[in-house]
Nucleic acid binder design. Structure first.
Lengths: 229, 229
DNA sequence: TTTGGAATGATAGCAATACTATCAAAAATA
DNA sequence: TATTTTTGATAGTATTGCTATCATTCCAAA
């Protein structure tokens, strides 16, 4: 049986020993794993616990993923792959540039509910994982090795799209890539602060948390512009 | 012997079973531990390895720190405590507000070489740890508990100072706390990106890495100002 | 419909980690 | 000098992260 492979799963297939989207056990590993990590956090998460949830021995999970870390790499790369596809769609639309910028920021602040058709994954669970754990994918001693294997290519692609839009909307901007990565990371951090360290942010005080967050992120696109005006 | 306790060590003393600054073993644990973590990273770091370096059994280290995690809490809280003191000094100076803002941003982008007098700790090693590992102090399942014990009070105080300065420099700003935390976190992230994921940033392309970083962070203080102008 | 290969289940085992406990030696303090 | 505190030395335990083996089931081509 030849199954079609989407461009996303193609990019991230390096991080799985066996494509988990093509078998029912593989899909189960993804579905329940995502649910489990979003519940108990990545530190507490083990393949043994996941095995118990899906009624399979941990050894079976090791046949799909080399270890915990590459499993998290896979999930986050999958997430950014989804976002990347939607970014591309926005960029190729006929909207004015500023509307495209708004749409991308909205996408980052309110990620889609359903992430992938093949399996049933709640987008908000994916988002929770990425918000709380994605930093742990690249702030490790093995960043450079993981990066050279393409672990962050989907994230970097999203950053590329956003920085392109920032350049067109704010052409005097000296640091479009840095602003893009700031918007991407801070959209998650500020929400995390809102939930756990509220004195580190003020989103949710003017309007709703989500609206404040978006307004803040839109403002970020113009950081530094005062020097020109 | 009654030893004077600085306001910093006072704030963070909760996170040590026994004050490490008051014994030679304690200071050794801090000095070598900081050096070791900055070399091998926090994931690879164990009390056993540290014990080997200082010629003491790991059990002795457990007499000072409950576990790895509180040890990292202690180190980062110590770091932000130092920065906080220097912030206070800047704020109480006679400089104009904008100069104070510049001084704080400079402090965040180029942290001081010597952090604490009592023991010999290289500020750049402390900075490396905080840059690469500090996110792991608060992005855990135990944030709320740690926060309620005051684990992040020194960081929050720095954020408070910076957001105050931002409000005075940019009075129309709607989100001073969020901009402050963005500047604090992004000063570390952008440097990390520069070193490991260069396509995520553009610092170091116009001028020196450090100068670009500072200019970017200064611009952040004015994020969103375009809407008013 | 059989058959060979791949995928899974079941179980065992191992080195390392993150601790805890105990007791004797050494050091500091009174 | 007596005594309390601090350290060293050693042992032990539960869990984690992973590997290995072999039997079983599934599935697809011949």
């Amino acid at each position: 049986m030849v199954q079609e492979i989407s461009p996303i799963t193609d990019k991230i297939s390096v991080f799985a020993i066996k494509n988990p989207l093509q078998t029912s056990l593989g899909r189960s590993i993804l579905e329940h794993g995502i649910s489990l990590i979003s519940r108990i956090g990545f530190e507490e998460f083990t393949f043994k616990k996941l095995g118990n949830e899906i009624g399979s021995p941990e050894a079976s999970i090791y046949r799909y993923f080399e270890n915990k870390h590459t499993y998290l790499l896979y999930i986050t790369a999958l997430y950014w792959g989804m976002i990347d596809e939607k970014c591309l769609h926005i960029i190729n639309s006929e909207e004015p540039q500023f509307q495209k910028a708004l749409a991308i920021i909205d996408l980052l602040c309110n990620p889609p509910r359903i992430m992938i058709s093949n399996i049933t994954i709640d987008g908000s669970m994916m988002y929770r994982i990425v918000m709380s754990e994605s930093v742990k994918t690249f702030m490790t001693k093995q960043v450079d090795k993981d990066n050279s294997k393409g672990a962050f290519s989907t994230l970097k692609s999203v950053n590329q799209h956003l920085s392109y839009i920032i350049s067109t909307v704010n052409p005097m901007c000296q640091y479009p890539r840095a602003l893009a990565s700031t918007i991407i990371e801070m959209s998650m951090f500020q929400r995390y602060f809102y939930e756990h360290l509220p004195s580190m942010t003020d989103i949710g005080k003017q309007k709703s948390m989500s609206d404040d967050l978006k307004e803040l992120m839109i403002g970020m696109m113009y950081a530094g512009k005062h020097q020109i005006v």
